[in-house]
């Protein structure tokens, strides 16, 4: 493998991680929105959310990616593979995040909410200043855990032929007739990135544990 090969794999790795990050940035607030819909018990939207979460959580990323990519043109939207991939990743992580946010909302101490009500806070203010900061704190470990899993599962969209780490490794392998080394490099590189996320996760968990104890 030449230096150029290594470089192309490194670039592809970062391209893949960028896709993960975009889907995370979109998926976390989307998950919160869906969790609020369920919390508010709006009749139709709640049901739809329940079904959506249930289906997406049991669906393999690969299958979902293929479904979205082939289904969208039927509805009139034709997406390039990369946006389709990001859409898949976002929908997927949003479904898991919904459950995380929901759990935090359900465990939110009722009396704090009542206190805010009794002080005459209006709904928007109530939510922003009382509920939101606390559920962010209590959800953070689980959200970061989900982010780690999300980064790890991004290569799934390789099935859509997006140029990223898997494709880069395959290309190098096809050129050198030695498929193994580029995949080993890709594997190691990607694992280091995931490991960095895991480390960050542990630091955050520890900091929040200390803050809770203090």
């Amino acid at each position: 493998m030449t230096a150029h090969d290594y470089l192309s794999i490194v670039q592809a790795a970062f391209a893949t991680v960028s896709m993960s990050l975009v889907s995370i940035v979109l998926g976390v607030p989307l998950g919160l929105g869906l969790a609020l819909i369920r919390w508010s018990r709006l009749p139709l939207l709640s049901r739809v959310t329940i079904v959506y979460v249930s289906i997406i959580r049991t669906c393999p990323s690969v299958t979902l990616a293929l479904l979205i990519f082939f289904a969208l043109p039927e509805v009139g939207i034709s997406l390039d593979p990369v946006p389709a991939g990001i859409l898949t990743l976002t929908l997927s992580t949003a479904a898991f995040n919904t459950e995380i946010w929901r759990s935090a909302l359900m465990n939110f101490p009722r009396d704090q909410y009542d206190a805010a009500l009794s002080f005459g806070m209006r709904r928007g203010l109530r939510f922003r200043r009382v509920v939101l900061p606390q559920i962010v704190r209590s959800s953070l470990p689980a959200l970061v855990n989900e982010m780690t899993l999300q980064v790890k599962s991004t290569p799934a969209v390789a099935v859509l032929g997006i140029v990223e780490i898997t494709r880069a490794a395959i290309r190098v392998g096809a050129r050198t007739y030695q498929p193994l080394p580029p995949f080993i490099v890709a594997l190691v590189l990607y694992s280091i990135i995931v490991f960095a996320f895991v480390r960050t996760q542990r630091v955050i968990e520890r900091r929040y544990a200390r803050a809770d104890a203090g």
Partner: peptide, 16 residues
């Protein structure tokens, strides 16, 4: 195993 993406791992086993 917890840091490695499964897709890449499949390729590794398959080629390896």
């Amino acid at each position: 195993m917890r840091c490695v993406p499964f897709l890449l791992f499949v390729y590794l086993i398959y080629f390896g």
